[in-house]
Amino acid sequence: MPETAAPIQSAIEKKLTDGFQADHLRVENESHMHSVPPNSETHFKVTLVSGDFEGKNRVKRHQAIYGVLGAELQAGVHALALHLYTPEEWQTRNGVAPSSPQCMGGSKHDKH
């Protein structure tokens, strides 16, 4: 049986597919790299390539994503690593998004 995405990841993928003319979309659940319970859906890496980003700076691109994913951000998605490119920018990068850094650990519940 093929592996299916978890509910929040699926919702993010659908909203981004509906909200943008995507040439490339990859949503990765990176929660396992952070200090959260197993099977969490709190940290995501989004790589989105779209002509919709033409003429928009980084801030405007991020605002567009936050506008589409507002409900998810309000409901427990803690972090989005956003890698947003125009098709030309993506081609210049040879179709490769940066790797996410390892979590430095820690939690608001840890004693300092």
Score class of each variant (00 low, 15 high):
M1E: 09
M1C: 12
P2L: 10
P2A: 15
P2Y: 15
E3T: 10
T4C: 09
T4L: 15
A5D: 11
A6C: 14
I8E: 03
S10N: 07
A11R: 08
A11V: 02
I12H: 05
E13M: 10
T17W: 08
F20E: 06
F20M: 11
Q21I: 12
H24F: 14
H24D: 01
L25Y: 02
L25T: 00
N29F: 05
N29K: 00
E30M: 10
E30Y: 09
S31T: 02
S31H: 03
S31M: 04
M33T: 04
H34T: 05
H34Q: 04
S35L: 13
P37C: 10
P37A: 11
P37D: 10
P38L: 15
N39Q: 08
S40L: 02
S40H: 08
H43S: 04
H43T: 00
H43F: 09
H43Q: 06
K45N: 10
K45C: 08
K45P: 00
V46T: 05
T47D: 02
T47M: 03
V49P: 01
V49A: 14
G51W: 08
G51T: 09
G51K: 11
G51E: 12
D52N: 11
D52H: 07
F53W: 07
F53Q: 06
E54D: 13
G55N: 07
N57H: 10
N57I: 02
R58L: 14
R58G: 09
R58V: 11
V59E: 15
V59I: 10
R61D: 03
H62Y: 13
H62E: 12
H62C: 09
A64I: 05
I65L: 07
Y66P: 00
V68F: 14
L73R: 03
L73S: 04
Q74G: 08
Q74K: 15
G76Y: 01
G76H: 03
L80Q: 01
A81E: 08
H83D: 12
L84R: 01
Y85Q: 05
Y85K: 06
Y85G: 06
T86W: 06
T86Q: 05
E88I: 02
E88S: 12
E89Q: 09
E89Y: 04
W90Q: 03
Q91K: 15
T92L: 14
T92C: 10
T92D: 15
R93H: 15
R93S: 14
R93Q: 12
R93N: 09
N94T: 02
V96M: 07
V96Q: 13
A97M: 03
P98H: 13
S99K: 12
P101A: 15
P101V: 09
Q102Y: 12
Q102I: 08
Q102K: 10
C103P: 00
M104D: 14
G106L: 11
S107I: 01
S107G: 00
S107T: 06
K108S: 14
H109A: 14
K111A: 07
H112M: 14
